[in-house]
Design a protein around this nucleic acid. Structure first.
Length: 984
DNA sequence: GCATCATCTTA
DNA sequence: GTAAGATGATGCG
């Protein structure tokens, strides 16, 4: 099918800039003459529906030819909805065209910022154009004009001539066109916005919308805005001054950053205002009176029939034989016409995208029970014993597992039914509420069931519940029969494996996204902020609803994910063979903790403090006055204003940039002091003081928490404290590492994968040179320098090696010449030459970059070595910067993500062979594992770990069904010593 | 009291 | 240029 241009109109010269000074203003025009009894003139922002429905509706809407039809259906539904609602006589659907407009002429960025649209959407566009035509609705595409401006112009003319207007769009920029007789209606979300709606949403009037956007900026439209002025400040300033002109006249009285930046960026305001303004006086031929809907049922019925059958819109097709034509806007037909399934899909997607339409989970028929007596508990025990699997959730006094005590337990054995067993809810005076069952009795009766490996355990973030239960000497185990590994399902990890990027993986997020259900929030039951109480202070009936809902929702999620995983064998394997076993190991590692030498940390802290004070004193002498050395703002003003040092650059929020990269270029005694001050105060506050504060007072061990469902690539993250960013690069920083020690009779042993991401690059790219270097065991950075410069490895200088190292890292990060130039302090051209030389010598690597970008664009995801799909949602973003960012992330993701897969496999492999009496796994730092090991077994255990890690792809991975023919050797380096520094 | 910015730490 | 988390300063309510 080809696009049919019979509805396109004569071009507008994109180089002719509109006259913004005399632009007619829809929001402020006179509307007293408008007759509201007539049906409104409807202007549809076709481009909005195209993009919105394409991204919001499932891609599973397809015909048997594999054509995705979600945007076609979504846009069609929007049109039909409008016709049903208004029975309009005049209407137009407006689309952008590909040709440049005056906005391109205004801004170079605008010109460059036209990325390709997803092919799956492009394919749908001609169908939409044809459908609009076949429905008898005028379609407007004007070369050189944007849909927004066509709509603005026609809306103005219609109102001028006495008609009221409905603009069908969800684009907030269009709010500037609202007045008494012009409203916006988003037919996808159902939201209608009039003047009151604008005031409610942004606190300003529609006629202030242009100024509002100009001040605040709008990244999606490339409007920069004034730094330091966001939604809120823009609103307040407009309320005070009415408009930007008045604001600028009184700018002297505007305090703070906003006032300062208004002056500084005043010159940019007119330009931004133009970008934000919708044109209302385009020289287009059509008048609203020309845009008549053809309501003759027979006019295009054959065309419609053809389209519906090709698209396989069955119910729409059937409805054509009905006496009424859909273009009549007959409600009875329109309601019956979309087929039930796709209507349901549309409805589902709608619910997930608008909070107002989300169910609350209580609207179901529910059977939620509170267990308060032994007979009821006995009955529950019997059900749990006989269940193949069930959901368990613990309620506790804290979100930190280390200090949490159990308050109650909830269970679910099927959807829509749940049980809560309150144990230690308290009255205000901390007294236990009497009617509850005894905690220890309940736990001891549950213990055999929770420890029974044949009864599957399901939960949301089970690592947490496992920690809690282990406080009470219960070892939570129990898998599904079809998956051998422990725990039947962790819904958080399941969601993470299925799609790490589509949503966060907290239960509230999962309920909203997958079940279209808004759960009771913790704040609802326990209050928020300082007034929040712990769960044992929540009344039992309220707590029971909350806890039962958690278990119920978790069960429903289990049902859903179980089905989804049955259809994707690799995802199931990633969950059951990789993530869940990893979670169990993490649970042990967190519980182990790492011993620290408190006295040493305290000494360091004291030493740092003395040096900091001395530095402050010297700084004040140089500056001539006291100021806060830790304040970038005060430092910037002191250095660049008061002391008059040249080289001041400002950040986007208007203050001087004083980052290390800038300061280290400045030759001034104060700078030296500041850099040393910063280094020391960072070490003191973030490490020496903080570690001492979080260490267990009895055991002197520090227990981090690993978050397993957070990063976009599959890496773990570590918090409270973060033990993945302990210093190593500087001598002083390394002192911190010396505080991490082993207990008497043991040593710290660290094992890390050498150059794992570059090896993965060699594997994926199959580049002959890179592969060769690793196979020969060369110093990879020196080898790169030698290769690129065409000299012998032995002749490579230190600088040459350093540059090669930077380029190797750059590769992993999706490097640009700009970025490399900054890193190496060379010109962009030099950096580009260097990159060109590199790609000339490593053509496989270049090809990998090209292929990975293409894969991300075409499929919407990239894959790791174990087949984990990492989705790249912004890969076709309309903003060029965002898109390029997504491309770099897409290049990096398979490398970083595969390294994460490998270390998880390694943890599982090592855990299996590690003699638990003689060694403990303590930490994971992305490509490194840290252990404490009996001193007399170091050699032996070190070898055990090295072998397990190096052979992981030929042993553990294969056992679990992943067959990877890795292109280069995996190398593990180990070392040991009295502390973590010595072990590295 | 809470959110955001700038800065700095790691792989 | 990728991926994270913690801190102090600052500004807002």
């Amino acid at each position: 099918m080809t696009d049919n241009d019979h509805n396109s109109h004569s071009p507008i010269n994109p180089n002719t800039l509109p006259n913004f000074d005399n632009m007619p203003n829809v929001a402020t025009m006179d509307t007293s003459h408008v007759d509201k009894d007539q049906p409104p003139f409807i202007l549809v922002d076709g481009s909005y529906y195209l993009f919105r429905t394409y991204h919001a509706l499932p891609k599973t809407m397809q015909n048997s030819q594999g054509l995705i039809t979600n945007a076609i259906r979504g846009t069609l539904n929007a049109l039909l909805k409008l016709m049903r609602r208004y029975h309009p006589t005049h209407m137009a659907v407006c689309f952008d065209t590909k040709s440049p407009t005056f906005r391109h002429a205004m801004s170079a960025e605008y010109k460059a910022a036209r990325p390709p649209i997803d092919i799956e959407l492009v394919e749908q566009i001609p169908y939409i154009h044809h459908l609009v035509a076949a429905l008898g609705i005028p379609l407007l595409r004007i070369e050189g004009a944007e849909a927004d401006d066509i709509i603005g112009t026609l809306a103005y003319r219609a109102v001028e001539q006495g008609h009221h207007v409905v603009i069908s769009t969800g684009d907030k920029d269009m709010m500037q066109l609202i007045n008494d007789c012009v409203i916006l209606e988003d037919s996808f979300t159902g939201k209608i916005t009039d003047s009151a709606g604008v005031i409610e949403k942004f606190g300003i009037e529609p006629h202030q919308m242009i100024d509002f956007l100009t001040l605040m900026g709008d990244s999606s439209d490339g409007i920069k805005g004034v730094p330091g002025i966001g939604k809120k400040t823009a609103k307040d300033l407009l309320n005070k001054y009415g408009n930007i002109d008045t604001m600028l006249k009184n700018v002297a009285e505007i305090k703070g950053r906003a006032g300062k930046n208004l002056v500084e960026y005043a010159d940019d305001i007119p330009f931004n205002a133009k970008l934000a303004t919708i044109v209302t006086d385009l020289a287009i031929g059509q008048d609203w009176t020309d845009l008549i809907i053809n309501t003759d049922p027979c006019a295009h019925i054959d065309e419609l029939r053809k389209l519906y059958s090709e698209l396989e819109f069955k119910n729409e097709l059937a409805s054509l034989d009905h006496p009424n034509h859909p273009a009549n806007g007959s409600a009875s037909i329109a309601d019956s016409q979309a087929d039930a399934e796709s209507q349901a899909q549309v409805a589902k997607s709608l619910q997930s995208s608008t909070i107002e339409n989300i169910k609350d989970s209580k609207s179901h028929d529910k059977a939620w029970h509170t267990i308060l007596d032994m007979p009821a508990f006995e009955s529950l025990l019997e059900q749990l014993t006989n269940a193949a699997h069930f959901v368990i959730d613990t309620e506790t006094t804290s979100i930190y597992w280390r200090q949490a005590e159990i308050v109650g337990l909830s269970f679910a054995m099927q959807a829509h039914e749940a049980y809560y067993v309150p144990l230690t809810h308290r009255l205000e005076g901390d007294e236990l509420i009497e009617k509850q069952l005894d905690r220890d009795t309940v736990l001891s009766r549950l213990k055999p069931i929770l420890e029974n490996p044949n009864i599957g355990k399901i939960g949301q973030h089970l690592k947490y519940d496992a920690h809690i239960l282990s406080h009470y000497d219960i070892d939570l185990v129990g898998a599904l029969h079809e998956s051998p590994n422990n725990w039947a399902m962790d819904t958080m990890l399941a969601s993470y494996v299925i799609n790490a990027a589509v949503t966060r993986h907290g239960m509230d997020d999962l309920a909203r996204h997958y079940l279209q259900t808004q759960t009771i929030s913790y704040e609802d039951v326990a209050g928020k902020g300082a007034k929040q109480v712990s769960f044992d202070q929540v009344a039992i009936d309220i707590a029971s609803d909350y806890a039962c809902e958690d278990a119920d929702i978790t069960y429903q999620l289990f049902d859903l994910f179980h089905k989804q995983l049955a259809e994707d064998d690799n995802n199931a394997k990633l969950l059951y063979e990789l993530e869940i076993p990893t979670a169990q190991i993490l649970c042990q590692m967190e519980a182990n903790g790492i011993l620290i030498k408190r006295s040493f940390l305290n000494e360091l802290s004291k030493r740092f403090d003395e040096e900091i004070i001395a530095l402050e004193k010297r700084a004040y002498e140089i500056a001539g006055e006291e100021f806060n050395l830790g304040s970038p703002k005060q430092l910037g003003e002191m250095l660049f204003d008061k002391l008059g040092v040249p080289g001041g650059k400002k950040t986007k929020s208007g203050q001087y940039s004083t980052g290390e990269a800038i300061l280290s270029k400045i030759d001034h005694p104060l700078v030296e002091i500041v850099l040393e001050y910063r280094g020391l105060s960072k070490l003191k506050s973030t490490y020496t003081d903080a570690l001492d504060a979080v260490a267990d007072n009895e055991t002197d061990r520090v227990h981090t928490s690993y978050h397993q469902a957070l990063t976009s690539t599959g890496r773990l993250s570590s918090t409270d404290p973060n033990l993945q960013n302990i210093p190593i690069r500087t001598v002083t920083g390394r002192l911190i590492r010396q505080a991490f020690i082993a207990p008497k009779g043991r040593v710290i042993l660290a094992a890390d994968y050498s150059q794992v991401e570059l090896r993965l690059m060699a594997h994926f790219s199959e580049d002959a040179n890179l592969t060769h270097a690793f196979k020969e065991g060369l110093d990879i950075h020196a080898a790169t320098a030698a290769e690129v410069l065409g000299k012998d490895v032995a002749d490579v200088t230190a600088t040459e090696r350093r540059n090669a190292k930077a380029i190797n890292f750059g590769l992993l990060y999706g490097m640009s010449a700009f970025g490399l130039a900054k890193q190496l302090q060379m010109s962009r051209g030099e950096a580009q030459d260097y990159i060109d030389m590199y790609f000339d010598r490593y053509p496989g690597v270049k090809q990998y970059m090209v292929d990975t970008r293409a894969s991300a664009v075409n499929r919407g995801y990239v894959e790791t070595i174990l087949g984990r799909k990492l989705y790249t949602p912004d890969i076709n973003h309309s903003n060029r910067m965002v898109k390029q960012g997504a491309e770099r992330a897409a290049i990096n993701a398979p490398l970083q993500g595969s390294a994460a897969d490998l270390i998880k496999l390694a943890m599982i492999a090592v855990d299996k062979v590690l003699p638990k009496e003689q060694a403990k796994m303590l930490l994971q730092v992305h490509d490194e594992l840290v252990f404490e090991v009996d001193s007399d077994k170091v050699e032996e255990i070190s070898q055990l770990i090295t072998d397990a890690m190096q052979d992981v792809l030929t042993t553990t991975a294969v056992e679990k069904g992943w067959h990877v023919d890795f292109a280069v050797p995996l190398l593990v380096e180990t070392d040991s010593g009295q502390n973590w520094d010595e072990a590295h």
